[in-house]
Every structure is written in C-alpha cells, then in structure tokens.
Amino acid sequence: MTSLILRTMVRLLLPLLLLFSVFLLLRGHNEPGGGFVGGLMAATGFALFSIAFGSSTARRILQIDPLVLIGVGLLLALSSGLMTLLLEQPFLTGVWYKLSLGALGKLELGTPLFFDIGVYLTVWGVTLTIIFALEEVG
C-alpha cells in the first residue's frame, strides 16, 4: 500500500482531518459533532496515514502512545465528574462558568466540555490502539 497518490493525499488530509476533528469536538455542544465523532475523525486521519506510511511513521508523527491517550481521556472524563464533588453536588453534575469577553460576547465553560474532551481522547486512543495493533501484528 505505498501508492504515491495515497501518500500525497494523506499528507494533505491528515492536518485537515485533525483540524476538523477539533472543530467537531468544540462545536459539538451546540451543533452536530462532539467527542465521539471528533475522536473518530482524528483516528481516521492517523489510520489513513498509517496505511500509507506504515504504523511506525504514524506513531512517530503522533509522538504519544495511543494507550496514554486512553488513560488521559478516561482520567479527564472522570475528573470532570469529580470536580463537582468539591461543590458538594452529585457526581457528574455540570458546572458552568460564564466568561465575558467584551465585544466578542460570552464564553461558557463547563465541566461537560472537559468530559467531552475526555471522550474525544479515549475514542481517539482506542481506535488508534486497535489499528496500530492490527497493523503491527504478524
């Protein structure tokens, strides 16, 4: 699977897909998208890259072991839920902070956002773990 067209395409696609995945993640709370889709999108980018260039190159570009992504993702999701315990509210209750950005409007930051980032990282990590493992076997 070392066709030149694929390689060139993938080289262009990867950053686009990654950017798009973050875009999907961040807009997910208000429009279609979210951690699941975002994570899958990011993973798809690397999956294509890994098919074109091999998993070792893909791993080098990624720099982080996908297993670490899984762990960080789960921890983030969990701790976003635990944060509410400090406020003596049930586990996973959403907590929101409104930041006023003057003319730009308001920015609403909440624990569900961190939770969604956790989902994103977990899905990304799991998918890549599976793809890399399948590719490197045998």
């Binding site: 997910g28 709370h29 208000n30 429009e31 279609p32 998208g33 979210g34 951690g35 699941f36 839920g81 996973l92 959403g94 929101w96 609403e108 909440g110 569900p112 939770f115 969604d116 989902v119």
Partner: peptide, 15 residues
C-alpha cells in the same frame, strides 16, 4: 447550556 441535544444527553444528562 447546550444546543445539540444529542450531545447534551451524552455528556451531561446521561454522562
């Protein structure tokens, strides 16, 4: 504080 109800269910109501 979310408009995408599916996503809100996933990350908040049924977190």
């Amino acid at each position: 504080h979310g408009r995408n109800i599916v996503n809100v269910i996933l990350v908040d109501f049924r977190g």
